[in-house]
């Protein structure tokens, strides 16, 4: 058992708050949800459980790259997100998969509606996160987003945070 038990409600609160920060483009607060050395991955649409070092990642940022990505997104010269995408995130089916010593594995389903440039996209998928359990809350050790689509629709560039 870990240092304390994480309930589904606590995991849901964490994920809902994260979704709100992203939808409101509060990227510095979002980055603060990661521990130092936290990582983020978005798997490719043909991903088949492979280790991310062999194949299958649209995004595989370590903490340094993640900080750089946020820094760029905040720039008005990040043309692909200026103006910003409008996103609306729905999160459900939250499950605690496993509680370890200092971490908890959480899975959830997501639908992200995104509007930009007169186009409309829906991104459907699943999160499988490894969260660090602290006395005062949860933080991302690994944030992994697994799109369900067989292919990304033409124009569905992943310039926002999936």
């Amino acid at each position: 058992m870990g240092r304390r038990t994480v309930t589904r409600a606590e995991a849901e609160d964490f994920l809902y708050r994260e979704a709100m920060l992203l939808d409101e483009w509060r990227l510095d607060e979002w980055l603060a949800l990661f521990e130092e050395d936290g990582r983020m991955e978005v798997t490719t649409t043909d991903w088949n459980g492979w280790d991310s070092s062999s194949a299958g990642a649209f995004m595989c940022d370590d903490y340094g790259l993640l900080k750089a990505r946020v820094k760029r997104l905040k720039s008005r010269k990040a043309h692909a997100e200026n103006p910003h995408s409008r996103t609306h995130r729905m999160i459900s089916n939250v499950i605690i998969l496993e509680q370890g010593d200092e971490t908890v594995w959480v899975a959830a389903n997501f639908i992200i509606h995104r509007y930009r440039d007169n186009q409309e996209f829906s991104y459907v998928g699943r999160y499988e996160h490894v969260l660090l359990v602290d006395d005062d809350g949860l933080r991302f050790r690994l944030r992994r987003s697994i799109p369900t689509a067989e292919t990304m629709a033409p124009g569905a560039r992943l310039s926002f945070i999936l």
Partner: peptide
């Protein structure tokens, strides 16, 4: 090799911070 892989996907590719802006222009 792994560091190159991370750097390449961070810069060029569907989530690439360089390529996103090229895509914006070409579209």
């Amino acid at each position: 090799k792994d560091a190159w892989r991370r750097f390449a996907s961070m810069t060029f590719g569907p989530t690439g911070t360089f390529e996103q802006d090229d895509g914006e222009i070409w579209t």
